[in-house]
């Protein structure tokens, strides 16, 4: 659940979601759930000339399974905290 907790700390921040069909959407992170489905507010499609289908979209639910990458503003990430959480999350079972 490390990434669920992580993305919850980014609520309200601007992120860019790159889908497996190469579409990139930017928007304000509104919420995230256990499947890493995410909801973005006031989305903008990057490269609107290429994807006119998507320019009218406003608030957008993105299914976690179609996500390839999510670009995160580095200044909002405490990497030390994240690494510690990852070590704890993945501690070998005794």
């Amino acid at each position: 659940m490390i990434f669920l907790s992580f993305f919850k700390t980014l609520v309200g921040k601007e992120i860019a979601v790159e889908l497996k069909n190469d579409v990139v959407m930017t928007g304000t992170l509104h919420s995230v759930d256990q499947y890493l489905n995410i909801k973005l507010l006031n989305v903008k499609v990057v490269n609107p000339d290429k994807y006119p289908q998507l320019v009218a979209l406003q608030n957008c639910f993105v299914r976690g399974s179609v996500v390839r990458y999510i670009q995160i503003p580095p200044e909002h990430v405490d990497t030390e905290l994240l690494q510690d959480a990852a070590r704890k999350e993945n501690a070998p079972a005794k």
């Binding site: 069909n21 006119p52 289908q53 608030n59 957008c60």
Partner: peptide, 23 residues
């Protein structure tokens, strides 16, 4: 389902465009 969104009817684009790539 890939995305679900509300939309601005005024901003729908009707011109020719390549179909969205599939996943």
């Amino acid at each position: 389902v890939c995305m679900i969104a509300d939309y601005d009817k005024e901003k729908l684009v009707d011109t020719a465009a390549p179909p969205l790539p599939t996943i």
